[in-house]
Nucleic acid binder design. Structure first.
Lengths: 215, 215
DNA sequence: TCAGGAATTACCAGATTTGGTAATTGATAT
DNA sequence: ATATCAATTACCAAATCTGGTAATTCCTGA
């Protein structure tokens, strides 16, 4: 009956107040805490057990990104909604990397904030339009290319994988219980198929083409 | 006065009809074309010059992902909104990689579709909640770790970079106009700093830690 | 001014990799 | 049944890499 339990971290007192009122006027939400800094973030969460945390980025003492990391590490079930004026790539991606579940901007309509809280609570990932576009573009750039198929045999993949993990021919031979010369034979085939002619090139190509997670 | 110009590709005739009606009832949108397959996608776009394309994935002849690639390649200004029943990672990421600007599901409210069209048109990236979450998670997983600093000197980075690009000691020496032995000296330092002891390990570590884009 | 790091060059000896050529066995495909 | 391919082993000679040790120059911070 008390709706989604929310706490907020923001050093702007006026903004915290207006959000407090916004949430109090709406039966779907309960404001369980409001803090001007996130130095005691773990304690605050322990005490209030929120469903959703609204987190500013620029705060004295500890910035919101660090706060997010702490929350994710200790309370993985809590959803975090970034609420900030920043829309630079650096902050956005740092927040996402830290584990934020949504990212909206302070110039948004109050109604959007409420909607975003609901959405992040129910497993969505509310993002300001420009942010979502940034995220999509970044993803487009990093997503693997259409994987070329180099027609490596099972054994060859096995050998290449070990090579990528730093083993020498001799070590690979030992690991696979085959002869040094057999490893060499496989390597020759691999070089041929990958169009390379040295271990370093093979490793670089294997990792870059994501033939292996390599780690 | 005729609003956002939309065309749609979907092999479900009933669905195309209902979207046709939906758009006709709304002055903010104009339906400029409706096709059951995207085999003639380039021609269709040439003729209709749409602002936004609504694209299904599963269609006879050519699937929507391929269609998206074609559109992106030839008409980069056109925004594409995926509209499909699929929410598997594979399809989602393939569509994003291909260049889709938004991704919503067919079980969404009609109102959401209209909203998504507006959003993708104005530079946003509308996504179904679950899709957005997938995207965020994927990004979290691929975003670079907090880069460890191996304290490599400028010269050492230079040498390592060339190594990653497949050059041998000799080639590196030539490229940098230094002696083979100098390259060796740098490599020894690099091995020490990266805690490795072979070229392959150095290359693997350099790429995995994203010291270089390596491509 | 002195210590320390970065960049450079040098040499030695041993380990490792590379390219070429060749052969055997077993499985698969036509 | 014949041809192709994967996996295996082998040997040679040349090229390349690795670890150790050492020295010089230049520049920078204490």
């Amino acid at each position: 009956m008390d709706g989604i339990k929310v706490i907020i971290f923001d050093d702007n007192d006026l903004l915290r107040d207006s959000i407090t009122m916004l949430l109090q006027d709406n039966a779907d939400f309960t404001l369980a805490g409001s803090y001007s800094h996130c130095l005691d973030v773990a304690e605050n969460i322990m005490n209030t057990k929120p469903d959703v945390v609204i987190m500013d980025i620029d705060m004295p003492g500890m910035n919101g990104i660090e706060g997010v990391k702490l929350i994710r590490k200790n309370f993985p079930a809590v959803q975090i909604l970034m609420f900030t004026v920043f829309d630079e790539d650096e902050k956005v991606f740092a927040a996402i990397k830290a584990g934020a579940g949504g990212y909206i901007l302070k110039n948004a309509e109050p109604q959007n904030l409420l909607h975003a809280i609901s959405e992040v609570y129910s497993g969505g990932a509310p993002m300001a339009p420009g942010i979502a576009r940034k995220v999509l573009h970044h993803l487009q750039a990093t997503l693997p290319e259409d994987q070329k198929d180099y027609h490596l045999s099972m054994r060859e993949k096995e050998v290449l994988s070990l090579l990528v993990h730093g083993l020498s021919y001799k070590m690979i031979a030992a690991k696979l219980s085959i002869t040094y010369d057999t490893v060499r034979a496989h390597m020759k085939k691999i070089y041929e198929k990958l169009h390379v002619s040295s271990m370093t090139e093979a490793v670089a190509k294997a990792i870059n083409q994501k033939l292996f997670s390599a780690k």
